[in-house]
């Protein structure tokens, strides 16, 4: 290994650390905003925006209890696995004008796999915690995961396929290529409707990924007292909460990168460092707007579904909407 590549390697590790910390801070901050907005919609005062940080620090000093009949290495390993896999997604997602750290070595399909790992970790942690409630929660998490994967994959395939038709030479599943050529510019009116349907599908898949109402069925506080997380406490619970916060950023950033990658700087004909700063800020505004519609608004507007109802929603209705989006985009290309 030459001297130059070692320096790049060290720099990349340093950058990865920065991104990880930044992702966690941003996630907790977004959680705070989400809670504040939800409170305002429910005509309450709500906690201060820094509340998720306070919760995190509080949990870190709390006792970490491992139940006697749990399998300790899975029980303790699951939250770490979930957090690591979620943070690693951040390395593949561009943040506005800032390109992804590992953008060249991973694509959307890798992200789809990485997104499944926290859910699998949750299932493993739930089953290994030796509680009936956690087992029921883990079963539900599995069912839910299998239900929302198909609509999610439909979106990814459709976007990649359409981009491939337009620019056959590109690496079509790379997020950089997808956000450089947003779907809206590639299609006609019919395809536009199709793209809207795909966006809708992604918006409805997100609450399940983040396990919030109406799809917080695996945790279901009033039914299962926390479900998969019922036995988790202290540091392990804090890690799961961090996972959730980072995942919120990931899902929102993914939506922004796939559907709203537009920048504001060209409008004011800015360039250079100022343009990057403005675009980065604009990206965060987009992020919060997307979180509002994907998470906050949905969770205050509806009641929790049952697991069989949620399965029907995803496997039948949402898959149908996703496939309809695919069909529209395909018809748009043929016509």
């Amino acid at each position: 290994m030459s001297g130059g590549s070692i320096i790049i390697f060290v720099l990349k590790i340093f950058a990865a650390l920065v991104i990880a910390i930044f992702g966690i801070v941003l996630g907790l901050f977004c959680k705070g905003i989400d809670r504040k907005l939800a409170a305002m919609m429910q005509s309450r005062v709500g906690p201060p925006i820094r509340q998720p940080f306070l919760d995190f620090f509080k949990l870190m000093i709390k006792e970490n209890i491992v139940p006697d009949n749990a399998v300790p290495w899975i029980f303790n390993g699951a939250p770490i696995l979930a957090l690591v896999s979620t943070i690693s997604i951040l390395f593949y997602i561009p943040f506005g004008p800032i390109p992804a750290l590992l953008g060249n070595s991973g694509d959307l399909i890798l992200i789809a796999y990485l997104l499944a790992i926290p859910a699998i970790a949750l299932v493993a942690g739930g089953f290994s915690s030796g509680s009936t409630y956690a087992s029921i929660g883990a079963q539900r998490e599995m069912v839910l995961m299998m239900s929302y994967e198909l609509p999610l994959v439909t979106i990814i395939i459709t976007l990649g396929w359409r981009l491939n038709l337009a620019y056959p030479g590109l690496k079509v599943f790379s997020l950089a290529a997808l956000s450089a050529n947003p779907i809206w510019g590639l299609v006609g009116p019919l395809g536009f409707i199709g793209a809207l349907l795909l966006l809708f599908t992604l918006v409805i898949v997100t609450p399940a990924e983040l396990s919030i109402v109406p799809f917080d069925i695996p945790e279901a506080e009033t039914e299962l007292a926390g479900g998969v997380l019922v036995e988790y406490s202290g540091r392990n619970l804090a890690l799961f909460q961090l996972t959730n916060a980072v995942k919120m950023v990931v899902m929102a950033a993914l939506t922004v990168a796939l559907f709203f990658p537009y920048n504001i700087a060209p409008l004011f004909s800015l360039s250079g460092a100022l343009a990057s700063v403005i675009d980065t800020l604009f990206f965060f505004v987009k992020l919060i707007v997307v979180i509002f519609f994907e998470a906050t608004f949905i969770r205050v507007a509806v009641a929790r579904l049952k697991i069989d109802q949620a399965s029907v929603v995803y496997l039948i209705f949402l898959s149908a909407i996703g496939l309809l989006g695919l069909l529209f985009i395909a018809m748009d290309y043929i016509i």
């Binding site: 429910q42 005509s43 309450r44 109402v213 109406p214 279901a220 009033t222 205050v300 009641a303 929790r304």
Partner: peptide, 16 residues
């Protein structure tokens, strides 16, 4: 009842 259904917005509305 709304809270049991996970519909907390209605809980706050009705208690208000």
């Amino acid at each position: 009842a709304a809270h049991e259904l996970g519909f907390d917005s209605v809980l706050y509305l009705s208690w208000k």
